[in-house]
Write a protein that binds this DNA or RNA. Structure first.
Lengths: 200, 200
DNA sequence: AGTTTTCGAAACGCGACCGTTGCGTATCGT
DNA sequence: ACGATACGCAACGGTCGCGTTTCGAAAACT
């Protein structure tokens, strides 16, 4: 937690409503595609209906605010059922697809894809907190499939993962009102990929 | 061309050196990861060793400058040999990989991935000029493979393309000093994908 | 009741960049 | 030579966001 040390509970306590409004405003704007460098404390304060003082009392700078806000995100972590590989992979990609639609969940890709260069510290924390756990879960699905014999024993796990995840990100990133993501894309991707992944 | 109408050749002609320096500075900064919204005319002028006047005399605003600068990019357009699908696909992905390394060529992905939301007009032109021709060339490689019988006749071209291109972008975007792109990634990707793509 | 802390609001001085203008110089056509 | 235009440079007034300070009111504690 990078929040500034709060003082002893002498006087008026800090408003939880204000804090939530600040974090919500921050996440909403990031989800809408506002870059961290474009994100201004003033805009957050206005959007949250809060004085700038109330923000600076809690966070030392913009990056700390963003880090803490992102940490409060409870993002949908796919829980693969484990019955068969195809279902697990499709479930995983479907969660990714839903993330492209909902405002809050767009924070993931927006941060992961846009801020790596400029805010390496933020990116590193986000990578450890959000990205790596998901990549590891994805790898586990593939490895379990290899263990059960569903997938080839010599499958290149990293390559296979990047093919599926990359294709999904490719579509969601390019998507928009003009280029929507097909609803059946996860199935089509997984079925096409599994033709080569499956054990013969 | 969005350049401001130049006057008749009465007085001193405009300096080609200055113009090239401006465009070079613009492209360099975009390649380095500077967002269009972050790109300031002042910074371009300083970097190019040029007065702001010299820029404003040629372009009405920042977006026009960026559009014209990008239009001068003569980017490597893969020319698939057409002998076999595997070689063509690998060639294509290798060009993409080289684009991740060289400064100038990073403009492609930086514009394509980061500016779609905020500069739809710029993105549309860039898409028509750069992205779509490459996608079409990629589709042609796959379609030719289907015609010659190398690939399955029922291959889902769009899905196949997004798997390969998406995986490549996924790696190049995530790449950096800490996470370099493996040199043999194109081969590994294509070989893994072709297992499912090939006709039996 | 009195103390302490937080609240939202407003204003501060600072710096970055905007797009424009004027300056003195340089380089073209006539 | 001379007029026209472009050059780099510096300054303009204006906007925005920074991080800080001050203010009166509100909300907890002793």
């Amino acid at each position: 937690m990078t929040t500034i040390q709060e003082s002893a509970g002498r006087g008026r306590p800090r408003s939880e409503r204000a804090e939530k409004a600040i974090v919500d405003a921050t996440l909403d704007m990031i989800g809408e595609g506002v870059t961290v460098s474009e994100l201004s404390i003033e805009a957050v304060a206005n959007r949250a209906g809060v004085g700038k003082t109330t923000i600076y009392r809690r966070w030392a700078n913009k990056e700390d605010l963003v880090v803490d806000s992102l940490a409060t995100l409870r993002l949908p972590m796919p829980e693969p059922g484990g019955t068969d590989v195809r279902a697990d992979l499709i479930e995983f990609l479907k969660v990714m697809r839903s993330e492209s639609g909902e405002l809050r969940n767009r924070c993931i890709t927006n941060i992961a894809l846009n801020e790596a260069d400029r805010y390496p510290d933020l990116y590193r924390r986000f990578r450890e907190l959000v990205i790596e756990p998901r990549r590891e879960a994805f790898r586990q699905v593939l490895r379990r499939g290899m263990a059960t014999g569903e997938l080839r024993p010599d499958l290149d796990v990293e390559v296979a993962m990047s093919m599926l995840v990359g294709a999904m990100l490719f579509h969601t990133k390019m998507s928009g009102p003009a280029y929507p993501v097909p609803g059946d894309l996860p199935e089509r991707l997984v079925d096409e990929a599994l033709r080569g992944f499956r054990a013969s």
